[in-house]
C-alpha cells in the first residue's frame, strides 16, 4: 500500500493515526502540508522517526519541501518527485489520508 498524508502533524492527528494502519512493506508519502511531518528536531518528529524504525519507507515530495523551505529532514526520510509519486502508485494500491 501507498499511504499519502497531506496534513501537518501540528494541525491534526492524521499522520499519527495512519501509522496504526500501515503494513510491512508499505510506503508513506508526505505531500502538501504533510511534509512538515518530515522535519527533524520538532516535537512531532518522533512520529516519522518511529515509522522509519518500524520499517516503513517514508518519502517527502520535493516540490512541497522546496516551497516550504524545509531542508532539515529526519534521518531516513527520502525525497521523491511527482514522477516518483506515480511510480509508487503504479506499484501499490493507494489510500489518501484526507
Amino acid at each position: 500500500m501507498l499511504h499519502t498524508v497531506n496534513k501537518s502533524p501540528f494541525q491534526n492527528s492524521t499522520l499519527e493515526s495512519c501509522q496504526r494502519f500501515i503494513n510491512k512493506g508499505d510506503v508513506l508519502l508526505l505531500i502538501e502540508d504533510g511534509v512538515y511531518g518530515a522535519v527533524a528536531g520538532s516535537v512531532k518528529s518522533a512520529i516519522v522517526e518511529g515509522a522509519i524504525k518500524s520499517g516503513t519507507e517514508v518519502y517527502a515530495l520535493s516540490s512541497d519541501l522546496k516551497a516550504r523551505a524545509i531542508t532539515n529532514l529526519i534521518d531516513g526520510v527520502q525525497i521523491t518527485d511527482y514522477a516518483g509519486f506515480v511510480d509508487f502508485v503504479e506499484k501499490h494500491k493507494t489510500h489518501s489520508w484526507l
Binding site: 497531506n6 505531500i31 502538501e32 512541497d64 518527485d81 511527482y82 514522477a83 506515480v86
Partner: peptide, 15 residues
C-alpha cells in the same frame, strides 16, 4: 493545494 497536486500528478503520469 489539492488541485495543483492533482494536476502535477496527472502530468507526471501522462509523461
Amino acid at each position: 493545494e489539492a488541485s495543483d497536486s492533482a494536476y502535477h500528478f496527472i502530468k507526471a503520469a501522462i509523461d
